[in-house]
């Protein structure tokens, strides 16, 4: 049996995942806040919306990709031997986090595409709504990730 992919670099990758995740939470929250402001007529916030419309997909997709790379080592070293046996609820919460992260992807992509373009008020409202729901999902993903990691993380001593 081969050790899972990234097992040797699991702790470093987890820290990177957390740092990029924190940045993604902040950027998604900013995009949501500025998008609401722009929809409510604050034209000077247009520049901020465009800026965060660029930053959010870069950060969120990077964080998501790092999470996908870490998934095999989590599955083999954390989930199967530890969480499924001792804390099945935490194992289920991790799966919910993964589904929420995946479902946030299309919402944040659409919100970011709309944020990059000048648009009428009805389209701005759609962008703001998507940014708010997307940011809420990103917050949920981050909090569930922290909760699961507080039980057992990849790279933990046996």
């Amino acid at each position: 049996m081969t050790p899972p992919f990234l097992q040797d670099a699991a702790r470093f990758t987890l820290i990177l995942h957390a740092v990029v995740g924190m940045a993604a939470v902040g950027a998604a929250t900013h995009l949501a806040t500025y998008s609401i402001g722009l929809w409510r007529g604050k034209e000077p916030w247009r520049w901020h919306v465009r800026l965060f419309g660029l930053i959010v997909p870069i950060l969120f997709l990077s964080q998501f990709a790092i999470g996908l790379l870490l998934y095999p080592v989590y599955r083999v070293t954390v989930r199967v031997p530890y969480l499924d046996v001792k804390a099945p609820l935490v194992s289920a919460l991790f799966d919910i986090k993964e589904h929420c992260a995946a479902l946030a992807v299309p919402l944040l992509i659409v919100a970011s595409l709309l944020a990059r373009r000048p648009a009428a008020k009805d389209v701005r409202r759609i962008g703001a709504l998507l940014a708010v729901v997307g940011a809420a999902l990103v917050w949920l993903v981050a909090l569930l990730g922290l909760y699961v990691t507080s039980y057992r993380a990849v790279g933990a001593a046996p």
């Binding site: 299309p106 919402l107 992509i109 659409v110 595409l113 709309l114 373009r117 000048p118 648009a119 009428a120 009805d122 389209v123 759609i126 962008g127």
Partner: peptide, 17 residues
């Protein structure tokens, strides 16, 4: 024309979502 393009982009990406 920019508004129309933004509306088309919004609609098509929402269908994608």
């Amino acid at each position: 024309s920019q508004n129309q393009r933004a509306a088309r982009l919004a609609w098509s990406t929402l269908v994608g979502a």
